[in-house]
């Protein structure tokens, strides 16, 4: 992506403004992701799932029981 990644910080802040429940941990994770692998190639479903799980954990969301036992 662009050398100047200031815009990412701005867009993340904007999105968070609209969704105040989103935690700082999520913001901290998504910025580098957006500047890195999310921009580099179309991610395969397995990788997207892993990123989704990490973000859910950052939100401190209790995963449903069925998933927790997996």
């Amino acid at each position: 992506m662009s050398n100047n990644d200031q815009w990412i910080t701005i867009r993340v802040a904007e999105a968070r403004e609209h969704h105040p429940l989103v935690t700082e941990a999520v913001s901290a994770r998504i910025g580098p992701l957006l500047n890195g692998e999310l921009s580099e190639r179309t991610l395969p479903p397995t990788r997207l799932t892993a990123v989704a799980k990490a973000l859910i954990a950052d939100m401190a969301l209790a995963p449903p029981k069925a998933e927790a036992t997996q």
Binding site: R16, H18, H19, L21, V26
Partner: peptide
């Protein structure tokens, strides 16, 4: 929370 994350 999940809604917020998806919305974000």
């Amino acid at each position: 929370l999940a809604e917020a994350l998806v919305g974000f």
